[in-house]
């Protein structure tokens, strides 16, 4: 009898999985913007991974013979430099492709760092309340009172700009968003009947957090995280633009913008293409976030 049930239940689990996959696909089609978003994000990821294969030139290769070449379709453009070259004769197309790596790495890693900190602190503050909650929320208030960019500039100035410090700085300044959001959700979830039931059963607090609270805040956490990858990419670009991002010869979109700014009047392509790349990637991520929000909402 029991083995029968086991087989039956396993079959049912797999059935459920395929059902949820179908549901996910259907909502992807229905959300209209979800599909383009997902495609853009996938393209960005693939570009980042296969950058050396796709890029026709070494992004750091300086070539004084081909400075300020316009894109290939314009007068004076060369076929091998699809999007033209910059002030040092480097291929803009290859640089945009390599820039994807930095943007995505910084965007995702910073979100992982800040998300982990925020999730942990938000769960603890929301669930235990009392002194811990008060203390944490006052720290959050203090952080909110400091202008973000200024804070990051100071820290980057002290630690010195590098990929790692950039990730740390972005992560440390952004955990507040998560902590506040998660805390709010936890406050409402911990008053739900199933959490009270779990307490009345005699489940330990830690287990309640992992079994009941975490799974129920996780969907909003995922949505906020995706959206904040987008804002982080923009922040990274801003910092690089200010010269405190990743340092040359590593390519980043923000850095390209800041270099291209000086030549905007004569060679617009140097700054424009990384700008378009930033906008497209961020838009794609935001669209995907919207779709995820619909998908993970249990009411839909």
């Amino acid at each position: 009898m029991t083995t029968n049930v086991q087989i039956d239940s396993q079959r049912r689990i797999t059935k459920n999985r395929s059902k949820s996959f179908v549901l996910g696909f259907r909502s992807l089609v229905r959300s209209k913007l979800g599909l383009p978003g997902l495609v853009i994000v996938l393209i960005s990821c693939l570009t980042a991974i296969f950058a050396p294969v796709i890029a026709p030139h070494d992004p750091a290769q300086i070539n004084t013979a081909h400075m300020f070449l316009p894109p290939a379709w314009m007068d004076g453009g060369m076929k091998e430099y699809l999007l033209g070259t910059d002030n040092l004769g480097r291929d803009v197309f290859s640089r945009v492709i390599y820039g994807t790596r930095i943007s995505l790495i910084v965007g995702i890693m910073a979100v992982v760092v800040s998300g982990a900190i925020g999730l942990f602190l938000g769960l603890i503050a929301g669930y235990y309340g009392g002194f811990i909650d008060n203390a944490l929320m006052r720290i959050v208030d203090a952080f909110l009172a400091i202008p973000n960019i200024l804070f990051m500039l100071v820290i980057l100035g002290v630690l010195g700009p590098s990929l790692l410090t950039l990730i740390i700085v972005l992560g440390v300044t952004n955990w507040i968003i998560y902590a506040r959001m998660i805390r709010g959700e936890v406050l409402s979830i911990k008053e739900r009947d199933y959490v009270i039931a779990s307490r009345s059963i005699g489940t330990k607090n830690l287990q309640i957090i992992f079994k009941h609270v975490l799974p129920n805040v996780f969907s909003s956490f995922i949505v906020i995280s995706t959206l904040s990858v987008a804002t982080t990419i923009i922040l990274e670009a801003s910092l690089s633009f200010l010269g405190l991002g990743v340092q040359p010869p590593t390519v980043s979109w923000g850095g390209m913008l800041s270099e291209g700014r000086n030549h905007l009047a004569t060679s617009w392509w140097i700054a424009t293409f990384p700008g378009i790349a930033i906008t497209m990637t961020v838009l794609g991520i935001i669209f995907m976030g919207d779709w995820l929000r619909d998908l993970l909402d249990p009411r839909s």
Binding site: R192, D193, Y194, I196, A197, S198, S200, I201, G202, K204, K211, H212, P215, N216, P298
Partner: peptide, 23 residues
Amino acid sequence: MRKKRKDLQMIFQDPYSSLNPRM
């Protein structure tokens, strides 16, 4: 008290909200 709860259980009013929808 947590250990004592073994002997002391509760049935809730609302069978919709007292079961975790994700379990």
